[in-house]
Amino acid sequence: MIAYDFMYMQPDTLRQARENFLRLSESGQNPVYYAGGSEIITMCRAGDIRPGAVIDIKNIDACQALSLDEDWLRLGAACTLNRIKESGLFPLLGLVCGRIADHTNQCRITLGGNLCGSIIYRETSLPLLLADAKLILYGARGRRALALKSVFDGRMRLQPDELIVEAQVPLWALNAPYYHMKKTANEKIDYPLLSVAALLYEDQLRVACSGLADRPLRSKQVEVALNRRALSPGTVAAKATALLAEQARDSVEGSAAYRLFVLENTLRSLVEDWHDEKI
């Protein structure tokens, strides 16, 4: 039960969506873009947010893309996690999507919602960061294409009226060797204590993680440390973990110290697998 009412609209085009967003903002109605809705509904119920209007973007064709073209895999912002997973087009992203929330919720949660949400894990960003994905945004200047990393520092840095239309993933990433490990406090269906994703590009490991810090991160230094093939997996894992020590967070799911312990174990097993050519 949501205590305060809001207006609901379902635009058919990006332009309609944004125009309505601007108009409602100007009249003080505090609109939000809405896709899968799970986070917005729960936050409205809890009284954490009180939008005057929700603008449902699921009916906009541009946000529903899921296709391969010559250079890119195009993933519409309103694609559900389950649809991405079942498409099998980007195996690493599919794995990550399959470990967010639970299967039924994966039939609702969207790529755009996961990236823009306030829940800090935003795990779909991990494969996209590793793949040097682009985002197509729609805002004041119409569409613009940007590298994900330029508008995502662990959270999306969009203009208030801007929305994600789609993510574009370069084709090399779809077939690159990959690794994903999600660790939880003890129950599989839980927020990650740590979620680690890795892609192999030109024989170099790319690694990003969520859960350790208050936002997802991909660190150059960590990747440099992990890619020192002359050193043992245990050694590089310890060195990489030390680089992230200050960012580890305490939460009810686990302490910072324990997260670092889990990180080190996970990185070691990742590098072991890599050295053993198991990924």
Binding site: D102, A185, N186, E187, K188, I189, D190, Y191, V252, E253
Partner: peptide, 16 residues
């Protein structure tokens, strides 16, 4: 209370 809901208070699910 730090875990006053079924999101963060974990019960065992099927599979474990």
């Amino acid at each position: 209370p730090l875990k006053p809901n079924l999101r963060t208070y974990k019960l065992m699910h099927i599979g474990e």
